[in-house]
Amino acid sequence: MSRCWKLGDNVSTDEILPFQYMVLTDPSELGRHILGSVKPGFAEQLTRGDVLVAGLNFGYGSSREHAPLALKGAGIGAVVARSFARIFFRNCINIGLPAIVCSAAVDGICEGDSIGIGLQSGVIQNETSGARYAFAPFPPFIMEYVENGGLINTLNKRNSDPV
């Protein structure tokens, strides 16, 4: 089960990971600096597998992959939002971080709720309230990226698997 943290609309990549950390590449080092201006001290409060639950257009702004990489490095296991900025969404999938569009979950989940996410079934189960929220599962080629832990692993797997 995963504990949820809530965020508002249009949280930008500048806010997820400010420019001064863009010279870092190590995910866990990046992870120490996430969302500092939005939720001070956030990185220290996280437990591995926690889920961010955000509003509209999460990851608005720059193409910096450091932003989702930092979330992953900080232990975030998935992001649920009403919608995602286009490049941020692709970046999440490409590094194997599930980015799930589900407005019902955003409406229903309160900060601190415990949830389980069924990527294949397309169901989020709220263990705290008992509610269930349906979402459209990823198409197969995106599911392949997520299950393999990202694009690079998928490429390597495809190239090594005999066809």
């Binding site: 992959e65 490049i87 692709r90 970046n91 490409n94 590094i95 990202g150 694009l151 690079i152 490429l155």
Partner: peptide
């Protein structure tokens, strides 16, 4: 169009992007 770093690594290797 803009893409991220991992995707660009794959573009450099394959010359293609979905």
């Amino acid at each position: 169009t803009g893409i991220g770093a991992t995707e660009m690594a794959a573009v450099l290797a394959t010359g293609r992007v979905w």
